[in-house]
Each structure stands twice: as structure tokens, then as C-alpha cells.
Design a protein around this nucleic acid. Sequence first.
RNA 1: GUGGGCGUAGCUCAGCUGGUAGAGCACUCGGUUGUGGUCCGAGAUGUCGCGGGUUCGAGCCCCGUCGUUCACCCCA
Length: 418
Amino acid sequence: MKYEKIQAPKGVREYLPPESQAFEWVRQQLISPAKLAGYQLMELPVFEETGLFSRGVGESTDVVSKEMYTFEDRGGRSITLRPEGTAGVMRAVIESNLDRGQLPVKVWYSGQFFRAERPQAGRYRQFYQVGIEAIGSDDPALDAEVIAIADQGFKNLGLKNYRLEITSLGDADSRSAHRTDLVSFIGKLDLDESTAARAALNPLRLFDDKRDEIKSAMKDAPLLLDYLSDYSRENFEAVKDYLDDLGIAYVVNPRMVRGLDYYTGTTFEFVHEDLGAQSGIGGGGRYDGLMEVLGGQALSGIGFGLGVDRALLAAIAENTLPVASFTSDLFLIPLGESMKGFALSLASELRQSGITVELAFGDRALKGAMKAADKSGARYALVVGENERDSGLVELKRMSDGQLISVKISELKTVLSS
RNA sequence: GUGGGCGUAGCUCAGCUGGUAGAGCACUCGGUUGUGGUCCGAGAUGUCGCGGGUUCGAGCCCCGUCGUUCACCCCA
């Protein structure tokens, strides 16, 4: 009886060695600027009560209406695998009263998210994001800082071929004035049924349509940026000024559309140029009403989510991965059974100094062990036999050029960490 | 959810108008005594995604299904 193999669920992205090293590096680089800015970790559940998303993200969004993994748990509760991060953060902040302390609350998160979409290049049903949220301040300097943190994450990866697009969705008054005019503009267009239905749900969506006929029809549509209230406009100007001061390049895209309903005010997206259809590597914005809608106080917040999977694809496309740093410093080969104990101790000692050391296992011939050393990509190889143990002197082999370097065992740490 | 491409050894693929499966790379061992990357030799490897159909005969044709990939849509 032979069992069938079980496959991973459709559309999930797994990271296995050696690629996982690059993935971990990318995730680390993306989030480190937030840590440097005093954001603190929030470790959250990957599933939440369904109502959190239908209420927080918005019933009319595609994400909620057709892309959520929703199921009933054994207690008859409706549960949903999180499709995004902000709603969960807000829920936790409210539930634990973090907003009763000093403001803004500044947190970061990292983990997997789930959307039941058709998989595609850069689009997976389980995907990874890192993100931050800053809650309880509407200072435009905070908007600029949040954008700068995201931008620094991409710079840490060495990325260049991306652009930052920003716009402002204004406050409630700005949006309702614009919406009235936009709806009447769209009403005069001759649209097919499904497009009209989309427009009825959220007229802004038509700005995002890729079809030429829609693009040209929308060419003269009223833009939200022209409807901003004085407060919103001044706020947006301030954010742009700060970005200029920071030397962060951006383009204002008044037709930007975000897929989540809670965004207000400053809104932004990072778009990479070498990625194909799924080119958004990160995005975010301000959300004024979200906390209140979720039963908390009426505090404003701003945050972003960065796609780790896509950032990795971008780093591969731009060839910026520091591949050399993904391998060990030393590959240690004990000569014969009797030297294994000595090798284990030596490896352990070196590791305590932060040196990455791999050991040769099994009883392969020295030649085979050297081959293994070569394939591991380690910078140095070292054979230890009785001679070395007794004399305290070893021949360290530099793998890049094959040179043997005589070193005292006591000085290995120094040589290897340089 | 809609549409197109693809599914043959671990990987990349070849397999002519249907006649019972191959290459390169990788892998293991060896080319005698303690140092890899080159070279040479030897070896292991597949229910040709799965199910059904047509046929004397199917990896090659047909249908279905699953997976994968790209695009629409949507977004990270």
C-alpha cells in the first residue's frame, strides 16, 4: 500500500533553504527602521472574529466580500483568517486599553495574512507582511515619519527601481462633496453592467481600471484632491514639505485607489517597476474613523503594510541580496572518530563568539568532507586531527583561493571574526 | 470568479507523423597514505500529475480532474 503524497494548499508560498535565508533577511531589513524609531512588537492572532474585518475593513471591499477565509469554529463562532493587519492591531489596542497611556501608540507586527484570490506572480493566498501602526496623533510629521520608515526599509534592501505615490483622501466633508460630483459624472458614462455595479459600490474604483476605454472616459473625472477642505489641504501640504525635507522622492497620484475602506487623509503606495502585474510592494495611510467604528475612542491613526514576498521578488529582480552573508564562516572537519569530541567543543566555543560554524558529520573520506565544505559556501574550512590538537596550531583554508593559513587555535576567533 | 500556457528522473528539459523512456546538471563511490572547485571512471534515480476514453498499442490523440504559471480582477 502506497500512500499518496499530500501537497501544500493551493497558492501558499513556502520558504525553504536556501531561499529562506534571503526571506528572513528581507523581513529583518524591512522592519528594522521601525524598531529604530521606537515602535514595539505586537504579536497577534492570525484569526479573528469575522465582524472585525467586515466592520473595520468594509463590507463593500473585495477583500471582505469575496477574498476572506471564513469558517465556523466548534463553538459556532464565525472566524476569519486575517486578510490584513491594521484591524487586528486596533482591536488589540482597544481591548487592552493601550490608548489610555501615552500617545501615539507605536507598534509593529510581522506575520502571515490570508486572501482567497487566484494565485499569480507575487500574489499568494498566504502571504507575509510587516507593518507598523501609530495611533493617537494627527501630526503631519507623523505621516512623514511613517512613510520614511517604510521607504528606509526598501532602501535597506538596496532597492532603487520603485516609486512612492501619495495622495490625500481628505476628511469626511472633502470626500462626500467629491463623491456627489463623481457619482453624477459617472452617471453620464455608458458603462457595462459589471463596471456600473463596481462603480455603485465604490465610484473611486473606476480610477483604477486598466482598460483604455475606461481610462479615457475617466480622464476628466473630478479628482478628490480638488475637493480637499482647508484643513486637509494644509495637512497634505505639510506632509509633502516634510518628505521634501527628508529627501524622499514621491509622485502625487490623485487617482490612487486603496482597497480598504478605512483610509482617510494621507494615503500612499510603493510600486516596484520590475515585478509584473502585482507591483505594489507596500502601502498604507491614515484612518480616522477606524478606531471608533471598532468600539474605541475616536483617535486617528496611520500605518503601513509591506509585502515581504514581493520585496523579496524585487530584491531578486534588482539583484541586491547579500548572498555571501547567508553562509557560514567556518566548516570544521574532524579527522576520524577520535577527533569528533574535540571538534564539537571547538565549534561550540567559536559559536559563543558569534562565529557561524558547521561541522562535518558521518564518516566520509576527507575529500568528501572538503566537497561538503565547498558546497556549504563557508568562507573557511579547517581540518582538525591529533597533530592540531596536540600542537595547538591549525591550517585554516580560505575557500575563495585555496590558501592555507597557519593559525593558533587560541587565535581562531580573532581571525575568523575579521 | 474569468481566460491563456504548462505538468516526463532531485533540477532544467528532449522525446520525430502514437510502437513499451533519454540528456545535461546535481547526487553517491572511486582515481591508495591529511585538504574542495577541473578532469576521468563507476553507480543509483521515474506507476511520463491523477482518472477515464480512443487504439492491437498512448508520454504523445480526446474528455475530465488536480496542480502550476501568466493575465484580468484585486492588492502586499
